[in-house]
Design a protein around this nucleic acid. Sequence first.
DNA 1: CGCGTTCTTGACTAGAATCAATGCATGTGG
DNA 2: CCACATGCATTGATTCTAGTCAAGAACGCG
Lengths: 254, 254
Amino acid sequence: MQGRCRRANILPMSHEKREKILRLLADAPFFRGLSEEELVAALNSSTRKRVEKGSFYFHQGEEASKFYLLTGGRVRLTQINAEGHQVIMTHLGTGDGLGIIVALSKMKYPVSAEVVSGSTALVWSAERIFELMEHYPRLSLNGLKLVARRFSSLQERYRELATERVERRVARALIRLARQAGVTVDGGVLLDLPLSRQDLAEMTGTTLFTVSRICSRWEQGALISTSREKMVIRDKQQLTAIAEDLPQVWPVSQ
Amino acid sequence: MQGRCRRANILPMSHEKREKILRLLADAPFFRGLSEEELVAALNSSTRKRVEKGSFYFHQGEEASKFYLLTGGRVRLTQINAEGHQVIMTHLGTGDGLGIIVALSKMKYPVSAEVVSGSTALVWSAERIFELMEHYPRLSLNGLKLVARRFSSLQERYRELATERVERRVARALIRLARQAGVTVDGGVLLDLPLSRQDLAEMTGTTLFTVSRICSRWEQGALISTSREKMVIRDKQQLTAIAEDLPQVWPVSQ
DNA sequence: CGCGTTCTTGACTAGAATCAATGCATGTGG
DNA sequence: CCACATGCATTGATTCTAGTCAAGAACGCG
């Protein structure tokens, strides 16, 4: 892609850069517990890839052949049904693995991985990641723990979807996003990623209209303040009250 | 519990019985690929437990301290929210593992495991299963593959819940149950587990009333035939048509 | 046989989807 | 710099799916 690259999609790397990435690798939950040499071995068998906002690491239905470790940016995993109705499963950030669960099972990717803000990743082939796991059993265990955690979280959201009203689901989605991508600004917590009404709808299993109405109400009640694809949480307590069905300090809905 | 047992909850075991269980262990996806000696070592560090219909292996929120491998019967995993609204996550049967995902993460059980038809299981402590995984890395890999598969399946159902209408969700639930617990009888496939309207509702995120109406319609159209807590699928093709939104041979709904 | 479940059906309601029209930013090119 | 196109957001009107509540029937068990 760039002139300095010897191969397509492979970024050049200075010594410092390499060191930095090694540190990142050491901190990534998937590689935790590996020795320095083991990390280097893993790193040496990876390539690097940069994907810009709006592009995809992979699409749902493609043969799963790669494992990615995000070294920057944010990615969302989406699934789409036959009628074209889309759902956002989760957001991933720096240090998160992409495609762990499939690279070793000869499956197709069950979701698409769309970049929300310009991102970079380390890439391994399925075979290579399999070799690494055989050599360093620690990796399988790490992977198991990771998938287990994501599984539990998905289970919780599944129950939410099955039992809770839309307003509460949206409140919870915002609170989760705040944890993952919240930066403190004057007057609240800014969700540091582009977030349209449509996105929120796809995260909560509803429509952009319903989300819009809810947000309008909340803006009236000074729980949040929004502008196009931006959102600041101004009153986390109230929002939590809605999310958890606690008694509210001030009436908001209606 | 029984006089012949030396310890509570531990069943007596004849030589043949032991052989049979060893075979079952060898076939269980989680233990696949282990050598005879390794299997014996695993079996030797397990105890056995029997749990009757209506009782629980564990409850949501308890500290996860055990890993179970079902050697008979059926279990369902349920989650309940603060208001008491319950959701059935999945059904497990012989050879399936129970609590893999938590026994090694010091989490609380995110679901309850309720026995639907009298069941037996092998039991390991969390520490022991952790040791086994360290000694036999193959186990971590097996575990990872298993959880990965369950994860994908849950993702699919999540999307279903977010995007599909109730009728289709119920149709899919029945088809899944038929795959898992279907026995061919004259005139169709009997779902070989007690299955109330309430159960179906909890599997599909709806109410027993809506399920009842849908089942009545289907019974009229000869897609299924039901009696109290029993169900026979008579026209799988039509049911699949509803589940997949294929054109229907005969109009059913409305 | 009586009792407790489970199941059915009807009437009514409400939460949320759908559809349509319009307003508001943002970025673009003449 | 303005006119315009485009995509995002708001709001209202309407419809409809599915939930709620109530009453009673059917079934199975002790």
